[in-house]
Write a protein that binds this DNA or RNA. Structure first.
Lengths: 108, 108
DNA sequence: TTATTTACTCTACATTGTTTAGGATATATA
DNA sequence: TATATATCCTAAACAATGTAGAGTAAATAA
């Protein structure tokens, strides 16, 4: 694949990070994608994708403090980097251009 | 990958078929994706994806008559099957749901 | 019969997506 | 302080999708 391909799942994960803002860590990211798309998201798939996105330099993570709850390993928070935002926008633009004019037909 | 995953490139190819209607064969499909998305599409990538989509039962092809032009091997025409249209719509819905409310933010 | 044009195929490999299982780090409670 | 339990993350193997380079097939032109 090209050096800057963005798969559908990567796309969804990045959008979840964008939506969640400062509360973007593993579990809510998974919940957000599941809630909005209706598809099941396995933990491993999500965390693996998050690591790959970081290796590509599109997102960045930091480890937070453990919270005083019943259980609780420290959370890893994610945020989009400018390059990631740009890539996401490009991908969206491509799809919007292709959908232009046929979206209505698709819904019949 | 899941039994019914739809990659980004597959998504674009299916939309090109939808857009082109009865004139949907290899070369115009490639041209359409290139013209609307700005990305370069290699012939091999397109034809391979078309064959895979047909194996999955989302599109169907038939070989046409050779046209009286300078060169001219017969064209292979493609069209979406109902299952393919459904899958395309599902994929679009998932993305629209995730974009809802953040598309504007993405454009700043 | 050879060259040229249009259309499509083969093979190999890189990247992305999924699954199954398990590990790490914290608090609760006896 | 040992054991249970909750939350969050990792490892490894494999399947599906995406890309590139070279090549084949079938037609017309000269």
């Amino acid at each position: 694949m090209g050096r800057d391909a963005l798969g559908e799942f990567e796309h969804l994960i990045m959008l979840a990070i964008l939506r969640l803002g400062p509360e973007a860590y593993g579990v809510p990211i998974i919940d957000e994608v599941e809630a909005r798309t209706g598809r099941t998201v396995s933990e491993a798939a999500a965390y693996l994708t998050l690591r790959r996105l970081e290796e590509k330099g599109w997102i960045k993570s930091r480890v937070g403090e453990p919270t005083p709850e019943r259980g609780g390993r420290a959370k890893r928070y994610f945020k989009l980097l400018p390059v990631g935002v740009r890539r996401l926008r490009e991908s969206r633009t491509a799809l919007v251009q292709m959908w232009d004019g046929v979206a209505a037909e698709l819904d019949r």
